[in-house]
């Protein structure tokens, strides 16, 4: 119940903020742009009808959505704990009978709800598709969305962790973007590392793990990876919150 109240407060704060609507608009504009260009490309290469929509369109579109999420999620997470520290409301919050884990859960779930709102907006493109070409072949989309959701959870937890390290939102946002870009580029350096190292990097990469989901295949190993990644960063965030016990700061 306490987590629910924290979640509601945090989500209310998102919904009351013009910045959130800005992020939502950017997300929807970019996702709409990518859907249009991917659809145009699909129509161009598929004039003989060789490609199904899953491999020809959805997979490509979801890959582009990953990129949009990477750009926009830092704007969602940067305020979560940094703002509380800046305002001093974190001290007020900890004076209530709340566990740190409850505070963290409320914030994480609010971030997730905001992400769901953004992803729900992107569903409009599929409604357009369904209106013209019917619902056949849309089933793999659920796997694709599950993949994006898991990626979103991982990115949110990482962003939340970085937001807990500073009270400056701009720094939190930029640092989060930097870390996300690092994860994006992680597998791009094949020439710089040996084959075995690249294999490890591929296993660690957040973004490359989604290809299976985008083709409609849910691999439990990939699900476990995202859950563990998310759990690790939430745990690290909790540990940062506990540093107030010995740091003597907000």
């Amino acid at each position: 119940m306490k987590v629910y109240r924290l979640f509601r407060r945090e989500l209310g704060s998102y919904l009351a903020s013009p910045a959130f609507y800005g992020v939502l608009t950017i997300f929807l504009l970019l996702s709409g742009y990518f859907f249009f260009t991917d659809l145009s490309f699909y129509n161009t290469i598929n004039f003989k009808g060789d490609y199904g929509p899953v491999e020809g369109l959805w997979s490509r579109y979801f890959s582009d959505l990953r990129f949009v999420m990477m750009l926009t999620l830092p704007l969602l997470t940067m305020r979560l704990l940094a703002e509380e520290k800046k305002l001093g409301t974190f001290e007020l919050l900890t004076s209530y009978p709340l566990r740190d884990s409850e505070i963290l859960a409320g914030k994480f779930l609010a971030g997730l709800a905001a992400l769901l709102l953004m992803l729900a907006g992107s569903l409009a493109h599929f409604l357009v598709w369904a209106a013209f070409w019917g619902t056949q072949g849309l089933q793999p989309l659920w796997a694709g969305y599950l993949g994006l959701l898991l990626l979103g959870c991982a990115l949110l937890s990482c962003g939340l962790f970085i937001s807990s390290l500073t009270e400056n939102q701009a720094i939190a946002g930029l640092a989060t973007l930097g870390v996300f870009v690092f994860f994006w580029f992680l597998t791009w350096n094949e020439l710089m590392a040996s084959e075995s190292v690249v294999r490890v990097l591929v296993r660690l990469s957040l973004f490359d793990r989604l290809q299976g989901f985008f083709k409609g295949v849910i691999d439990t190993k990939d699900v476990a990876f995202f859950v563990l990644f998310c759990g690790l960063f939430l745990y690290l965030t909790l540990r940062v919150m506990e540093t107030r016990f010995w740091r003597g700061q907000k």
Binding site: R9, G12, S13, A16, T89, E91
Partner: peptide, 11 residues
């Protein structure tokens, strides 16, 4: 009650 701490200004 803390004087130096602000309360959620958006609420």
């Amino acid at each position: 009650f803390l004087e130096r701490v602000s309360i959620y200004p958006d609420m």
